[in-house]
Design a protein around this nucleic acid. Structure first.
Lengths: 205, 205
DNA sequence: GCGTGTGAAACAATTCACAGCG
DNA sequence: CGCTGTGAATTGTTTCACACGC
């Protein structure tokens, strides 16, 4: 499997291809062309073929792609073929929202612990978890061998928390704070900022 | 103001510049160079200058940018200089999460109505709003002159809801359903898919 | 014939580097 | 001198178009 020279943007598109394939597999569709999958996802057929070619040859000429086979291959590539445990830092409105969302949907991502720096929140129940103080972070991450974290803390605390997480060995984070985190090489970080997205829309209105 | 030939990607970066400027303004900083702002946001100095040059000349040579002035200009460009009312479709776990998030943070985006197709949810209270049936959608959008909507419905309902929204005159939507929406020219749609983002991270792990 | 996989071509975005001005 | 604004150069991405195999 390649690892260095696949453009980031290609990797970001794979989950959407996977969604399309899962959708089609659920409907019992056996085979799909790059053309059809592209229409579903909203990208060109050539782009799908080029993107997939970074990882191998998955199609049959004259036929297209076998839906379940390509789906499984993409899951392997994205490491979406297994469950992941993650921790949540920040037990405010957004944090509890995320817990509810992730628990309600039956995803392969499971929140196994929640932390907050505010003592008033410690012990508070969120679904079947209890909010813990930040001092417990290191122990939990190490004991449970956690790779992923969600940050739902205020912007001015986010960098500090990110540093703590990195120090404990977390290698991926989903950051909801409206700030760009500084993380070392080898740690991967994705930002989600709904307000920024809304501003990107209102530009056109 | 330009409107057609500004690359989409430039528009998507502006909100982050705005964040940096708001941060600096709150700290009383008067002036900032593209270099410093770029470090904060995580882009190159040249990129900031080039991006801003699509909209005008905002800096002073030898000095940099006056923080509050550039902030205000960006707010104008993004139409973030006023409040926006929006509606939410989908009152499930994710929907209530979003209501709590948007109400708790004091943003300039205000949810003024919540809709759901499930009769069991009608009348349910979410903060100070009551979930309404989809049949009320058109009336509310027209009466309140709504431009923006958030979609938090299951994937297989999303396209239908999007069509309804477009028909009622909504011109922008933030889509949390894991599906690419088909919308006509002139309607703007941003996708937010946390699971896709997590998959983009686990690729590297 | 149909649809993949892929170099080559076209296009787009980013970075460079410097003129110009405070 | 410092820093912006911007063409030119570079780098990155997407599309084209066709050889190949089912």
């Amino acid at each position: 499997m390649p690892s260095q020279d696949v453009p980031q943007i290609v990797i970001e598109r794979l989950p959407f291809y996977l969604r399309g394939l899962e959708h089609m597999a659920n409907r019992g569709q056996r085979v799909v062309s790059s053309q059809t999958l592209g229409e579903w996802v909203g990208v060109s057929a050539a782009q799908i073929r080029k993107d997939l070619s970074y990882f191998g040859e998955f199609g049959k000429q004259g036929l297209g792609y076998e839906v379940t086979y390509l789906r499984d291959q993409l899951r392997l590539i994205l490491h979406a073929d297994r469950d992941w445990r993650l921790i949540l830092v920040g037990a405010g409105a957004l944090g509890s929202a995320l817990v509810n969302y992730l628990v309600a949907g039956q995803w392969q991502y499971h929140i196994v612990a929640v932390f907050d720096s505010d003592p008033a929140k410690h012990g508070k129940r969120m679904r079947d978890l209890y909010v813990q103080p930040m001092s417990e972070l290191e122990g939990v991450v190490e004991a449970q061998d956690i790779d992923l974290a969600i940050l739902a803390v205020p912007a001015d605390a986010a960098q500090q928390v990110a540093d703590d997480l990195v120090r404990c060995g977390v290698r991926g984070m989903l950051n909801y704070a409206p700030i760009r985190l500084n993380v070392p090489q080898g740690v991967h970080c994705a930002e989600i900022d709904p307000i920024a997205r809304l501003q990107g829309i209102t530009y056109f209105l």
